[in-house]
């Protein structure tokens, strides 16, 4: 056998535009890196990093509880409350939107399409921007944070809920329809029992995300642990920064564990 293999099997041609894609990618990265000024590092950077690290290892335990308030525990409690209420409000708000956006709940694609558009529109406005606007409306404080999370979460939650509705088994709907049930009864007996566990699971998932968001709302004055944190950072009170970071990490870890355990039981 002296036949060269490539007369038997032709090597598949690579995509001719492949190199174009690589070139474009390279151009994008050159543009990206050329724009970043790498000159602005403060000489004190190493010093501050050391201080923060040592702050985490020698936290300001006195800040955990202060009799006059504005301490770590109350800050964390506030953060928790903001995300609980925010998640609850967004769940209520997104229920009708989810059914609006689900393809199998309406006869026309235009209806569900417009619902989906609205949801991605809501999702695209960052919660921090919403918080800034709600502060203008109801004044600074936790309530503005609640409203911001409540409205922003509707975007993602509504999308997930709509997906859940679209993935349900339509058999029970048919069964109820053929027994003479009306639309509301079909919703109640055939649709909701199927989608509720999924809804709850997504709600908890969003709650985990909202916990993280709620820790930073305070940076702009919308309540929670973020306010004392940004204050400690700007006054270079590294021991206090340390205890607050520690508090946030522990709280979020606990919430994740509890929420994850409930979610596993739901499905």
């Amino acid at each position: 056998m002296t036949k060269p293999w490539n007369t038997l099997v032709q090597r598949p041609k690579k995509n001719r535009y492949r190199w174009l894609i690589y070139l474009a990618l390279a151009a994008v990265y050159v543009w990206a890196f050329s724009g970043v000024p790498f000159t602005g590092i403060k000489e004190t950077a190493v010093q501050i990093t050391k201080s923060i690290v040592s702050g985490i290892f020698s936290p300001d335990w006195g800040f955990v509880y202060l009799p006059e308030g504005e301490d770590l525990l109350r800050g964390l409690l506030d953060t928790l409350a903001i995300s609980v209420l925010g998640t609850f409000i967004s769940t209520l708000l997104c229920l009708p939107l989810a059914f609006w956006a689900a393809v199998n709940m309406s006869n026309s694609r235009a209806i569900s399409g417009s619902g989906k558009m609205l949801l991605s529109f809501i999702r695209a406005v960052p919660e921090m921007v919403l918080a800034l606007m709600f502060i203008k409306a109801v004044g600074p404080g936790s309530f503005a944070g609640v409203l911001a999370l409540g409205l922003h979460s509707v975007g993602m939650l509504g999308k997930l809920f709509a997906d859940e509705v679209e993935n349900m088994d339509k058999g029970p709907v048919e069964a109820l329809l053929s027994s003479g049930a009306n639309q509301l009864q079909i919703l109640w007996f055939a649709v909701l029992p199927q989608v509720l566990p999924g809804f709850l699971s997504y709600m908890l998932y969003r709650f985990e995300i909202n916990m993280r968001s709620a820790t930073i709302l305070g940076v702009i004055g919308a309540g929670g642990i973020g306010t004392p944190l940004i204050f400690a950072l700007s006054t270079r009170n590294w021991d206090r920064v340390g205890i607050i970071l520690l508090g946030i990490v522990i709280l979020i870890t606990i919430i994740d564990l509890i929420s994850g355990a409930i979610r596993r039981r739901l499905v």
Binding site: L85, G141, S142, V146
Partner: peptide, 10 residues
Amino acid sequence: LWGSSVQTEA
């Protein structure tokens, strides 16, 4: 929910 609304003064 009740505790949260008290805490956030909502």
